[in-house]
């Protein structure tokens, strides 16, 4: 065998110095460059490592009750993972309420495997040294809806009301800066500094806001979920912190996901 090796080590540095200082015209050029870069990375998105980890966690007998999550019902029947992510949030009759994907997965970890909710809530989101198990699980479940369309079952009990509440949450102005979600995410074509802002009230904008979550964030190299995204928006909104897996966040995610109805979900994404 010939040993001709083209050692094209695509060493991807987490700290991509995406020049925050480029011109308005070059800003679009910078955005375009980043888009290209992201396209390359999407082929080898480290999020896949978390999908693998999540799949292993899903199938392994774990927790005080030593069972796997293969009996977890994500809305399409016990153990059905394929297509479940793009059909959540949804109404779950066993608990009589609407749940989003992360909330439902944690519910299964608690109810089937016997994990303690307060222990799971102790570290809800990834940091540099630790990725919570539920983050990997959400990434796995989301990966099983890759290239499927958002199809939120709005005709189920409580869904319409949850949507309307989410819409009202997005409009709620409070805090020292009088911000609501819609202060920044209510119009087309706006930016904070260089960061483009999705208009969550439009189908295209809402699709952008849910697309790419859960996402691998290159800055810091951590895997983050839509629950995290909502949490960090409230931080920037200068609000106090939303409790993990709360009704408010489920309502907001319902509002976003239903507005994104019919758009194609490309799977776990990559973020700068």
């Amino acid at each position: 065998m010939k040993r001709t090796v083209l050692f094209c080590a695509a060493i991807i540095l987490a700290a991509i110095a995406l020049a925050t200082s480029s011109t308005a015209g070059a800003k679009d050029a910078a955005t375009a460059e980043f888009e290209k870069f992201r396209d390359v990375l999407e082929e080898d998105n480290p999020a896949e490592l978390f999908e693998m980890k999540g799949e292993e966690l899903w199938k392994t007998k774990r927790g005080p009750k030593q069972v796997s999550l293969e009996q977890c019902d994500l809305g399409l029947g016990p153990g059905v993972v394929r297509g479940a992510y793009v059909a959540m949030p949804r109404y779950f009759a066993d608990v009589g309420r609407v749940m989003d994907a992360e909330r439902r997965i944690v519910h299964c970890m608690v109810s089937l495997q016997g994990f303690k909710p307060e222990e799971i809530a102790r570290q809800p989101f990834s940091n540099a040294s630790q990725t919570p198990e539920q983050t990997a699980l959400v990434t796995y479940v989301a990966g099983q809806s890759r290239n499927m369309k958002f199809a939120i079952p709005m005709n189920q009990p409580g869904m319409r009301e949850t949507y309307e509440i989410g819409k009202a949450v997005a409009a709620y102005r409070a805090g020292p800066y009088d911000f609501s979600c819609s202060s920044c995410h209510g119009d087309d074509g706006k930016r904070i500094r260089m960061q483009e802002l999705a208009n969550i009230s439009s189908p295209e904008g809402a699709a952008k806001s849910v697309q790419g979550w859960p996402g691998y964030r290159m800055t810091g190299g951590v895997m983050l979920t839509l629950q995290w995204r909502m949490n960090d928006c409230f931080r920037q909104q200068r609000f106090p912190a939303p409790n993990y897996l709360s009704d408010t966040i489920t309502a907001l995610i319902t509002y976003l996901s239903a507005n994104a109805e019919g758009s194609l979900y490309k799977g776990p994404g990559i973020k700068r």
Partner: peptide, 10 residues
């Protein structure tokens, strides 16, 4: 970077 990606052609 953390969680590195490598590509080779052989």
């Amino acid at each position: 970077s953390r969680n590195p990606v490598f590509g080779f052609k052989v």
